[in-house]
């Protein structure tokens, strides 16, 4: 464990908590893409199957359980409890456009051709692009609530911090995993446009509104 990985994990955890609190406190999931949340749930479930086969640490197990349970809770809030507030008309990105290529790529480029390895790799590829329905929704409505911007910033920072973690691990532990690195890089790049708007607008007290 190094500082980048720990802060990355905490940013990830913060993002999830911000989102759950936003939905719970406002009793509304407007502006939130249910599809991105379904995709994240698929990511966690397929990646953390090793909870049943491989013990790493109490920290690792606890965080995995938190991610799976909280993402399921988020999906439940969006599609059941507060479904009247769900922006389904704007949440029109097709999930299969992300899931099918991720499956194909995971079958082709992975460490080993085993069920667990292919599912792990699929989860890495899918995570890289799972935010696209959310970014698409923001671009369709042209704006995001400030709290949603904080959520996106925390979620985007997490993989960026992991990139620093992988550089660290390469130098100090001689570890290198190109699948994680390339996918993590793509994932971080997808947020760049948003990061720019976040820093120039939201941090200056304005609402995130996309340029016309």
């Amino acid at each position: 464990m190094n500082i980048f990985r720990l802060t990355g994990d905490l940013a990830h955890l913060t993002a999830i908590i911000i989102l759950l609190l936003k939905i719970w406190k406002t009793r509304s999931c407007s502006g939130i893409s249910g599809k991105s949340q379904i995709l994240f749930t698929v990511v966690y479930i397929t990646r953390y199957l090793d909870l049943f086969t491989n013990y790493i640490s109490a920290y690792n197990t606890l965080m995995k359980i938190i991610f799976v349970v909280s993402s399921l809770a988020t999906v439940f809030l969006i599609y059941f409890k507060f479904k009247a507030t769900y922006d389904r008309n704007h949440d029109t990105f097709r999930m299969e456009f992300l899931i099918i290529p991720s499956i194909i790529l995971a079958l082709l480029i992975r460490h080993e051709f085993t069920v667990m390895e292919v599912l792990w790799t699929f989860s890495i590829y899918l995570e890289a692009v799972a935010i696209l329905p959310q970014l698409f929704l923001v671009s369709k409505t042209g704006e995001a609530e400030t709290i949603t911007s904080h959520y996106l910033f925390a979620l985007g920072s997490y993989r960026g911090l992991y990139l620093l973690n992988w550089i660290w691990r390469y130098y100090f532990e001689n570890f290198l995993d190109w699948i994680s690195i390339v996918a993590g890089f793509v994932q971080t790049v997808l947020y760049c446009d948003f990061f720019y708007l976040y820093v120039t607008r939201v941090l200056h007290g304005r609402k995130l509104r996309l340029p016309a």
Binding site: I56, N60, K64, E173, L176, D177, S180
Partner: peptide, 10 residues
């Protein structure tokens, strides 16, 4: 034991 880096991460 984890064979690949990344598999011990979240």
């Amino acid at each position: 034991d984890t064979k690949y880096v990344g598999h011990d991460e979240l």
